[in-house]
Design a binder for these strands. Structure first.
Length: 104
DNA sequence: GACATGACACACG
DNA sequence: ACGTGTGCCATGT
């Protein structure tokens, strides 16, 4: 399952962000928001974990990791306000980048 | 299996 | 806006 979550996280393009709920949903686990976090917290260097934030664009992480995430997001061109991101601009739509599920 | 924990999300005061 | 309580799901003890 974390495999699915990671796959979705990897689909998030640079300069964009997504929420745990959205990622979980796109991965086929509508209630797996916590598992998304669990998958990300492995700090897999191959995953853009910093592009996954909480509902409303809030940075859920704290401490050095939170600073790290904010720093990375800004490095991608995302404007971070304190602990929040402008979702209206940087929220990624999986439904728009969806690989052909089956039908077109 | 039960209990406790967690980078969530939502409802309520 | 904020803190608390509840629901959800997988993990570790």
């Amino acid at each position: 399952m974390f495999n699915d979550l990671r796959a979705v996280v990897r689909r998030i393009p640079k300069g964009k962000v997504s929420t745990y709920g959205e990622v979980a949903l796109a991965a086929g686990h509508p209630r797996g928001s916590r598992q998304v976090a669990w998958a990300l917290k492995q700090f897999d260097p191959t995953l853009p974990w910093h592009r996954v934030i909480g509902k409303g664009g809030k940075i859920l992480l704290r401490g050095a990791n939170g600073v790290e995430q904010i720093h990375r997001l800004q490095a991608e061109g995302i404007t971070v306000h304190g602990t929040k991101v402008n979702m209206a601009r940087f929220a990624h739509d999986f439904t728009k980048t969806r690989r052909k599920p089956k039908s077109a």
